[in-house]
Design a protein around this nucleic acid. Structure first.
Lengths: 204, 204
DNA sequence: TTTGGACCGAAAAACGATTTTGGTCTAACG
DNA sequence: CGTTAGACCAAAATCGTTTTTCGGTCCAAA
């Protein structure tokens, strides 16, 4: 596999990405992709095993881009609380421009399609990982109380689900404009909760 | 409208509920319902305007039952924190036996169907109301910090969404067994957050 | 009040024919 | 070796037509 090959593969993916983005999976044919890339259909199969594989790589590229950008934004702020806030607020904005990926993540697509299940899973793991890293960061800096170290994976998972639930709840009602405020709110409460040492809890 | 009428209406609803529960909306016909109720189809239309109306009343009954049970369970415990916990843990167990209602609530059903939109909305308002009441209760008892009184509605909404998000996240992965632990976790953090007075926050 | 039954139109389902599409394969060409 | 046109295949999708179903209306009879 040399540079020339990589170039061809990239060209195919670039064109496929545009088409998938515009027409979606079903309406984009291999013939379409071949034409757009200025190749023969046979060439597509020389470099890729199937339409599935092309789609998978396209979405993986998008996912990589999403997490690169998220990481950049998160790195711009200094506290774990701000990082978490940034993550929540930035996530939606970045994702909404990637229709196919967003649909996969939201689970709207029938979960029985193996290729989408895998993509969904991979995305989820990365997001949870990102949140976990922020939690760890906050623990190291003593920003968060030590009790949170007990089950950091579960907390990360739960938080990802919570934020996503809020996003869905607002979008169902077309209240996108309220997203920032609401995210701030739940994030604030969670942050307070994570910062509260056992010894700080009010006595009953 | 007299007692006799109410009896007939109830009988129709009882049978309809069974059928909808078993066969779902689409596969249950008015003829089916009529036969099951031992009535003529014309009788159904004498008492109800349409299939939609019957469905709506069936689901409303189920909703009433759900909230009655939830309120009972919540009333059994004494602190706002325990009430919230009970709500989270009990909700799924009660709802999972009401397939049609649960589907409406989860938003899996096409949001474009007016009758389902309304049902969904009504359920949502009631659940948020329930959470709001628990929050108020916690504020009155000084269980929760006063800052939470600033926007109690938004907090209630966000919490409902968060719990629901967690539920969805776990169910997608068939991790029903982890539901209780995870709900406890996020609830714990949220409760800590709600209990933390502004003056309790660590200084940076 | 109840309801069988006729009726209607729209939607859904069924059906058979046709087309499309992902994928395979091969040989020719540079 | 890389590229690819084009033949080919089976399965799936699409299409147009026909048939059936179903929610709802209506009416007259008991």
């Amino acid at each position: 596999m040399n540079e020339k090959d990589e170039l061809v593969r990239k060209e195919i993916l670039d064109e496929a990405q545009k088409l998938f983005r515009h027409f979606g999976w079903s309406k984009t044919t291999m013939e379409d992709i071949a034409k757009a890339a200025g190749k023969g259909k046979s060439t597509l199969y020389y470099y890729y095993k199937s339409k599935d594989e092309i789609f998978d790589e396209v979405l993986t590229r998008e996912m990589d881009e999403v997490f690169r950008k998220l990481q950049e934004e998160v790195n711009k702020v200094q506290t774990a609380e701000d990082k978490m806030r940034t993550l929540c607020l930035t996530r939606f904005n970045i994702l909404k421009e990637k229709a196919n990926l967003y649909n996969v993540i939201r689970g709207d697509i029938e979960a029985n399609i193996p290729r989408l299940r895998d993509l969904h899973r991979r995305y989820e793991l990365r997001e949870i990982s990102l949140v976990r890293n922020i939690l760890r960061f906050g623990l190291e800096r003593k920003e968060f109380a030590q009790y949170a170290a007990d089950d950091i994976d579960s907390i990360a998972f739960a938080m990802v689900c919570a934020f996503r639930g809020l996003e869905v709840g607002l979008l169902v009602e077309n209240k996108f404009a309220a997203l920032e405020g609401r995210m701030d709110l739940i994030n604030d409460i969670l942050m307070r909760g994570l910062k509260t040492k056992n010894s700080d809890l009010s006595k009953e």
